[in-house]
């Protein structure tokens, strides 16, 4: 799967979770850039991403990922079975 495709699918997940069709995530997007992205919504987001890509984040990744770019790195690692 290409990085662009992951971003495309992530955009759908973000828009669905935060109820905002205007969201476009980039490598640098963080919780500061999306108003409702607090620690509570973070877990909902993580679970929705897991369901979208059929993979699991471990709790260390959940609590330490700093931006969407890092999330994409983990997703690609998992999909490629690293």
């Amino acid at each position: 799967m290409k990085r662009e495709e992951v971003f495309e699918r992530l955009n759908k997940v973000f828009r669905d979770i935060f109820d905002d069709e205007s969201i476009v995530v980039t490598e640098e997007t963080t919780s500061n850039d999306i108003e409702d992205w607090d620690s509570l919504e973070h877990i909902n987001l993580v679970v929705a991403v897991e369901q979208e890509f059929g993979m699991k984040f471990n709790m260390n990744e959940v609590t330490t990922m700093k931006n969407v770019g890092e999330m994409v790195d983990i997703i690609l690692d998992r999909i490629e079975g690293k």
Binding site: S39, L40, I43, V62
Partner: peptide
């Protein structure tokens, strides 16, 4: 509490089934 109880609880299978 957030890192060791709240997040794992919210992400648990039981809570996801409830969701």
């Amino acid at each position: 509490l957030k890192d060791y109880i709240f997040y794992p609880l919210l992400k648990s299978d039981a809570m996801q089934n409830l969701a």
